[in-house]
Amino acid sequence: MLSAHIQEQINRELKKYPVDQKQSAVMSALRFVQDEKGWISTDDMSDVAAFLGMANMAVLEVATFYHMYNLKPMGKTTITVCTNLSCTLCGAEETVAHLKTRLGIGLGEVTADGKFGLREGECMGACKDAPLFTINNKRLCGRLSNEKIDQILAELDKS
């Protein structure tokens, strides 16, 4: 069952599209599920399908096509590091190495306490601020140094 909050958010999105095109809200619906639960299970996909009048398979197709959906449990805070060319030129390999050491996990993994997850991402369209990562697909942190990363992690650890 989708929570009342998610339903309300989806209903707001639906106003953007023609009444007979409810499927257009599927991407945001999956995003809302992920925001609330941290990841999207196949049960969640079925709930989204029922809510939008779509086939389960059509929702699965979307959820598996776009990289930013977590299809397995990730951390309360998931950090996605861009390692594309501009970021690599500016030290993204060191960013990844530092995060791995600090968090004690590899790419695609979650810390034992479930607090942090680490992912590699593709170009985020913010190359002038390289190297950079996003936090839970919401906040973009750029021009990273090891000190700045430590500062951000400490701040996240408290929240």
Binding site: Y17, Q23, S24, V26, M27, L30, R31, Y66
Partner: peptide
């Protein structure tokens, strides 16, 4: 005017993939 947020697919920068994506399909 309405905003539609992508969710991580380079190919959606191709205009017809983008249209598919707005329609709620894989891009």
């Amino acid at each position: 005017l309405h905003n539609h947020l992508g969710y991580g697919a380079y190919v959606c920068g191709e205009e017809t993939a983008l249209l598919e994506s707005i329609e709620g399909k894989k891009g």
